[in-house]
Design a protein around this nucleic acid. Structure first.
Lengths: 148, 148
DNA sequence: TGTTAGTTAGCATATTATGTCAACACGGGG
DNA sequence: CCCCGTGTTGACATAATATGCTAACTAACA
């Protein structure tokens, strides 16, 4: 496991102590599982994967833990155009390429984009703390399939 | 109805003729309904609303028509962080403010942001045609509620 | 107006998400 | 090290959301 993941687990530990809530094995397992992948799994995919570590974990708990981790800022709920909630272990600023045909989504790192200035003041009353750019386009696979 | 909406209906008419597919009353009704609102309704909210015009329309058809309209580029599937697909009648370039607490989403018009340059070439093989910026923050209502 | 291709309505079913509560585990104090 | 209390988990039921299927229907065109 990368050092980054180890740091994140320590952060989970710290947050739990600060908030006075238990650091359960399930919380650790779900976070670890998510950190080990670089895609954007659905809650059910996380449930599948986490069973390697915690065979007795319930689906309900995975959903609950994911919400908790999002609230702690340890993972992100990805803004995905499909109907299913997806989660992302990467919480540093990054952007997304979204396929307008198959809804596939991949990360895009681009330091150029990170300098966009946040809106001045509180637009529409929102207290903005971060942003992410989504580029809409067609993925290679869909381009090929569409030519047919 | 605004001229913009009228134009979009004409566009639907044109696209249907070009593709040789019928311009059904259901397609028109769903598009009209979506153009009349400025929020980001879910498919079911569209279903509710469209019944004023087409009381006999089925839920299944609304889902299908929404997909069709997205494929035609007449509406957008909004990249919403929640679990439910949402749709947007606005297809010109605009951005979103997303509440990290209640997932509320509102539009943000900002000419400054429209000048972001698309990535050079085809990043990860994607053929990028548009983009949208999402600002994450907390809406006024949630800020108040959290203070309690 | 009649023909035909494509769509729709209405159902069933699949998929995804949440409510509830008894049993259980974590964390702190003795 | 063990026990106790708070908060979490597991397993169910249920709700919410989305899709598959086919007979009946409608738009488009001659």
């Amino acid at each position: 496991m990368s050092g980054n993941a180890r740091d994140r687990l320590k952060k989970l530990h710290r947050i739990c102590r600060e908030r006075g809530i238990p650091l359960t094995s399930q919380r650790r397992a779900v976070l670890e599982t998510l950190l080990l992948r670089s895609d954007h799994p659905t809650a059910d995919q996380v449930f599948e994967a986490v069973q390697d570590q915690s065979p007795r974990i319930s689906r309900r708990t995975v959903y609950r833990v994911l919400d908790t981790l999002v609230e702690f800022g340890l993972i992100r709920r990805v803004h995905h155009p499909g109907a299913i909630a997806r989660f992302d272990g990467m919480i540093h600023r990054h952007h997304h390429l979204v396929c307008i045909r198959c809804n596939k989504i991949v990360d895009l790192e681009s330091p150029d984009l990170d300098n966009i200035s946040l809106p001045k003041g509180k637009p529409q009353g929102f207290d903005v703390c971060d942003f992410s750019v989504q580029f809409m386009g067609m993925c290679p696979k869909c381009r090929k399939e569409k030519k047919k």
